[in-house]
Design a binder for these strands. Structure first.
Length: 313
DNA sequence: AATTATGGCAACCGCCTTCGC
DNA sequence: TGCGAAGGCGGTTGCCATAAT
């Protein structure tokens, strides 16, 4: 008797997610969080397995995701971290805010591996590649040593992990940007700035600001004031999430968009989510619209309550 | 223009780890 | 301490878009 599957797979949908499903998942998580992935599909009305929902959210729908190509710096970091950690993609990803393990893994397999090979570097050992028969002889010779080497490496790796955990040393970039200071944004960590909120019941001309409450105080220069999450829940309860629109910053028709009288900051980039078929435009969400913000490690969103448009300030 | 090959990436699968009882 | 459930992780698959023929 094998282990029971994570969920009852009968009648569950597989394959690519539809916009409707994404919508359901986002709406559910934004209102309720994700207390239990197993129960989430039933509660949200999705015919998916909990794992599938989790994966979709983590790898694709999470608002703090930074999509698009990895920068040169990020790529170098992946290479360096891979040299230290091996295929521990989630650990590598934890050092790259806004990137997922899956994304990094894919990028490694499709781009970086080739790049390294082209440069004559073995992507697995990070050592110079040997040519043809030389390589073969080298491989055979190494096969015998591999077991011992593996043991050694495992021990070293264990020590490295221990050290990393012990020191919990944040990795800093050349410009002093400490990436470990950028926490991933969880729904329950999203707070609303009611004082400037745009709300039917209060002030039709204001905007909702959502900030990441977990941002360290050292990087709050661009962070706005926040209110407890129960107020955010109240807000969500009151407004009933009907739709979320992400408006692309490069949307040529942007100037013609009616923001339902909300006073949007001209500098704000917006993304229209549900008017498009391809959610990949979410990639704009975290893509360095404002260097000072990126540097501060504090991202912000604004919700236009009428259409629930999230904006990065 | 049609067909085949290739590359990229989202999603799945199954094992491992963690957590709660 | 042991067990089961749930979450997390890494490897792999399969679909789709694009390039090559």
């Amino acid at each position: 008797m094998g282990r029971q599957p994570c969920c009852d797979k009968v009648g569950l949908k597989k394959g690519p997610w539809t916009v409707e499903e994404d919508k359901k998942l986002i709406n559910f998580i934004l209102t309720n969080g994700h207390c239990c992935w197993r129960a989430l599909p039933k509660l949200s009305g999705l015919l998916r397995c909990g794992k599938s929902c989790r994966l979709r959210w983590i790898n694709y729908l999470r608002p703090d995701l930074k999509r698009g190509f990895l920068s040169e710096y990020e790529e170098q970091m992946v290479i360096d971290l891979h040299a230290q950690l091996g295929n521990r993609w989630s650990k590598i990803a934890s050092h790259l805010p806004g990137r997922t393990d899956n994304e990094i893994k894919n990028h490694w397999n499709t781009h970086i591996k080739k790049k390294l090979k082209k440069m004559g570097i073995d992507p697995m050992t990070h050592k110079p590649l040997l040519e043809g028969s030389q390589q073969q002889a080298h491989d055979e010779k190494n096969t015998n040593q591999e077991d011992q080497q593996t043991k050694k490496e495992e021990e070293q790796q264990y020590q490295l992990d221990k050290d990393l955990e012990k020191n919990n040393t944040p990795i800093s970039t050349d410009d002093g940007f400490c990436i470990d200071e950028v926490p991933l944004l969880n729904p329950h960590e999203i707070f609303v700035d009611i004082s400037s909120a745009h709300h039917h019941t209060s002030d039709d001309n204001a905007n909702f600001n959502i900030s990441n409450s977990t941002s360290p105080s050292s990087s709050t220069s661009s962070c706005i004031s926040s209110v407890p999450s129960d107020e955010f829940s109240k807000f969500l309860d009151e407004i009933e999430i009907v739709d979320i629109k992400w408006l692309s910053s490069d949307d040529s028709s942007r100037d013609n968009i009616n923001y339902n009288d909300a006073k949007f900051n001209d500098n704000v980039d917006t993304m229209k989510l549900w008017d498009i078929n391809d959610l990949s435009s979410l990639e704009l969400f975290m893509n360095d619209h404002d260097d000072s913000l990126v540097g501060s490690g504090c991202s912000r969103m604004v919700i236009n309550q009428d259409s629930l448009t999230f904006d990065i300030l």
